[in-house]
C-alpha cells in the first residue's frame, strides 16, 4: 500500500515538473501518427490501384510493358520498406540526404523527416491492404459498372474503391494504432514525441518507473480512444440499418403518371402554367 502511495506521489512530482513536456509529446505523437497514416493511405491507394489495372491478352505490348514495370516498381517499394526496421529507415534517410549532397541539402525540420519516414512505411503496408481490399470486392460489381458503360477509372472511383475502403477500415485502424506506438522510434532523429518526453524527464529526475507508468497510461489512453473512434467511424460508414419508405414522392404524381423531363406531365396545360414559376412542384397541382 505504501509503495503505491509512493508511486502516486512520484508521478505527481513528475507531472508538476514535466507535465507540459509530456502533453506536448502526446500532441506531437498524435499529429505525426494522424498525418502519416493519412498520407500513407493515399500512397497505399495509389499503389493498390496501379497494381490492379487489368490488361487483356489483346492489349498492345507497350501498355503491357508499362503495367508490368509499374507492378515491379511497386513491388520493390513494398518489399524494401516493409522489410527493414522503421528506426533504421529514419536514420538512413535523415543522414543519407546530407551525405549524398555533401551537406548541401538536409531536412529543414525533423517534422518533415519524421512524416516522410512514417508515411512511406505506412504506405508500404497499406499498398498490400488496398490490393486485398480491391480483390475482396465481388467481381460482379465491376461487371455491373462496365455494363452501364463506365470506364475503368469511373468503376474504380465510384464503385470499387468506396467498397474497398470500407473493407480495409479495420486495417487502416490497425495502422493508425501501430503508428501511435511506433512513432516512438523517431526519438532517434530527435523528434519530440511522447517517448522522448520520458527520456528527458528521467535524465534529470531518475524516476524511471513512475515515468514509464505515465507513458504506459498515456499510450494506452491514446490507442483506446483511437480504437473507439475507429469503431464509431466504421458504423457511420455502414449507414443506418433501416430506411424510410417514400410514400409521397415529389416527382411522382398519381400512380402511372410521371413528370418526364422533356415531355412534361400528362397535365400539359398545368405544366405550361407552372413553367414560368420559380419553384416548380408537381405536388398539389390538382
Amino acid at each position: 500500500m505504501e509503495i503505491l502511495i509512493q508511486l502516486v506521489s512520484d508521478i505527481g512530482k513528475l507531472w508538476a515538473k514535466y507535465g507540459a513536456s509530456y502533453l506536448s509529446g502526446m500532441r506531437s505523437t498524435l499529429i505525426l501518427a494522424l498525418v502519416a497514416t493519412a498520407i500513407g493511405c493515399v500512397i497505399g491507394f495509389v499503389c493498390g490501384v496501379l497494381n490492379t489495372i487489368p490488361y487483356a491478352p489483346g492489349d498492345s505490348p507497350v501498355k503491357k510493358f508499362f503495367l508490368k514495370l509499374i507492378r515491379v516498381i511497386v513491388r520493390i517499394y513494398v518489399e524494401v520498406f516493409r522489410g527493414t526496421p522503421m528506426v533504421l529507415q529514419a536514420v538512413f534517410l535523415y543522414y543519407g540526404l546530407p551525405y549524398f549532397t555533401n551537406g548541401a541539402t538536409r531536412f529543414e525540420s525533423v517534422w518533415a523527416a519524421a512524416i516522410l519516414v512514417v508515411s512511406i512505411n505506412t504506405g508500404a503496408y497499406m499498398a498490400e491492404s488496398v490490393r486485398g481490399g480491391i480483390i475482396s470486392v465481388d467481381p460482379g460489381q465491376t461487371e455491373g459498372a462496365k455494363a452501364i458503360g463506365m470506364t475503368h477509372v469511373q468503376t474504380m472511383t465510384h464503385v470499387i474503391l468506396p467498397q474497398a475502403l470500407r473493407n480495409i477500415m479495420p486495417q487502416i485502424g490497425n495502422n493508425f494504432i501501430i503508428n501511435v506506438k511506433d512513432t516512438s522510434v523517431m526519438f532517434i532523429i530527435g523528434f519530440p514525441e511522447f517517448f522522448s518526453a520520458h527520456k528527458a524527464a528521467v535524465g534529470t529526475s531518475y524516476l524511471y518507473f513512475p515515468s514509464a507508468t505515465v507513458e504506459m497510461i498515456g499510450y494506452l489512453s491514446m490507442t483506446l480512444i483511437a480504437s473507439f473512434l475507429l469503431r464509431w467511424l466504421e458504423k457511420k460508414m455502414d449507414g443506418s440499418s433501416d430506411y424510410e419508405l417514400v410514400q409521397v414522392d415529389p416527382l411522382v404524381m398519381t400512380a402511372g403518371t410521371y413528370s418526364h423531363p422533356d415531355k412534361g406531365t400528362p397535365f400539359d396545360e398545368q405544366s405550361r402554367e407552372y413553367k414560368g414559376k420559380k419553384h416548380r412542384s408537381n405536388r398539389g397541382e390538382h
Binding site: D138, G140, Q141, E143, G144, A147, I148, G149, V159, Q163
Partner: peptide
C-alpha cells in the same frame, strides 16, 4: 456498352 443494357443473374447492384 451504354447503348446495350445488361441485367445480370446476380443483380450486381452497387452495394
Amino acid at each position: 456498352r451504354s447503348h446495350v443494357g445488361m441485367v445480370f443473374q446476380s443483380f450486381n447492384l452497387f452495394n
